[in-house]
Design a protein around this nucleic acid. Structure first.
Lengths: 253, 253
DNA sequence: CGCTGCCTTGATCTTCTTCAAAACGTGTGG
DNA sequence: CCACACGTTTTGAAGAAGATCAAGGCAGCG
């Protein structure tokens, strides 16, 4: 019962500090908001991007820094956080390759509202925010796609507000595990592995709970056979069971 | 001490169920995202809008209804809410004339994620979502403005997530009162009146608290001379005092 | 092999909810 | 114009969920 195997996560073999050139082209070409543009247009946009690597746990920018660039994750995992002095940080978003973060807004003197931290070795592409806006205003279809993505993030932030207002920690953790599995799930012999390093503290910061409470809930889930988990990793063994917990007592969503 | 005057809110004298024609033109022309368009362009866009009136407490659309239109508030106050079966609803946004709500997204078979309810007699203008997207793709400057607004809402939803995760009800209520005063404040002999009907229940639903807790906090604020309040109305008497409560123990924002 | 950083578990304490009931304001109908 | 009735607000007391404080245990790594 107590045999908890070692981490099933495969850690980056190469220090991906430098994005390879073909990775870079693949990412930019595959960006959802540039879908539909001509190859030469994409090649030109490509020239506005610069690449940069970060080690695990390195900070890409801090909340409060002057907001100058928009970033796209090319490789690795990036988390977006807000802080409080009491150290009760909030983890708002966990980003994977192809997703963007940073500054979109017009206002020139703005600050990043969040801190962006590499969760793994990461490669990001950055573009000056004015240059990005210029691209969007030249290609309205791209602007609408970006609008859709931001709209989705708004919906998901509001859903989190609803959950924090109305549901127990247990339900919120079940919900977050399901969303993470949707986004990062990898089929494994025993269940759906969430393919990113994920500590109890991360989970706590994603659900507005303390490490201790998150740990208690995770232990309970494990005892009930809903999940399998160890140091920095989680795998779902009984998705329907978790869904039942996440949505018991309310139907929609 | 106990003399609490009657509501200082001026209720709509006219049943504004029908928007006047000039109100309508003024609103559409004044919409931030259409700023900069030529008058004839605005006149043409204007033709795509339809107007509709609602009484106080009437529902404009329900969460789960098929999402077909984008709405703009022309007159009155509209609140956006999400529900739970337990009745612990959440009030996500309180909208004033010039602000939009409803469907922006591309997906044709979507549902509204929120319920929109008139808080006062209301006049709204609606436009088919496809028509609105067509306008945005014809006028990229408008698309970028809309993107900025949605971006702001995302920031404010995330700030709420942070507060729900980390702060006491007292702080959250102080914060919400300040934001409402920023948006709806009217200078009065005694302080800043929040110019909309606002019950303890509304406040509770905005802050993830119960009516009783919201009432206790408001009573305490009143005892401390920070606010003045009665049935469905609130006025701020000591803004710095509230700011101190909202931000004590953390500096930024 | 022992160190460091995660993770776990227990006991206590605080905040907020829940349940209950009373007081008050507002608009209504007599 | 007054009084009643309803919905809002207030207050109290008891209970629960989760935070906090405090040890220990375990995994992986040098």
């Amino acid at each position: 019962m107590k045999e908890r195997r070692k981490t099933p996560l495969i850690s980056e073999p190469v220090p991906a500090h430098q994005c390879s050139i073909d990775l870079r082209l693949k990412i930019i070409g595959g960006l959802p908001f540039f879908a539909g543009l001509k190859p030469e247009e994409i090649a030109e946009i490509n020239r506005s991007f610069h690449e940069k690597g970060f080690q695990s746990e390195e900070t890409i920018f801090f909340a409060g820094d002057p907001a100058s660039h928009l970033y796209v994750v090319a490789d690795g995992r990036v988390k977006l956080m807000r802080h409080t002095v009491a150290g009760r940080d909030v983890l708002l978003e966990l980003l994977i390759p192809g997703e963007f973060f940073g500054s979109l807004s017009a206002a020139p003197e703005e600050e990043y509202p969040e801190t962006a931290v590499a969760m793994t070795p990461v490669c990001v592409l950055s573009i000056d925010k004015a240059a990005f806006r210029a691209v969007l205003s030249r290609y309205p279809s791209a602007a609408l796609k970006v609008l859709d993505i931001v709209g989705h993030r708004l919906q998901s932030a509001r859903e989190m507000v609803r959950q924090l207002s109305a549901f127990s920690v247990e339900k919120r953790i079940a919900y977050v595990l399901l969303r993470l599995a949707d986004k990062l799930g990898k089929r494994r012999s025993v269940g759906l592995l969430i393919d990113t390093p994920l500590s109890r503290e991360d989970l706590a910061k994603m659900t507005g709970a303390t490490v201790e409470t998150a740990s208690r809930v995770m232990s309970a889930f494990q005892r009930q056979g809903l999940i399998d988990s160890g140091r920095q990793w989680v795998s779902l063994k009984d998705r329907p069971g978790l869904e039942a917990i996440a949505s018991q007592d309310f139907e929609l969503e």
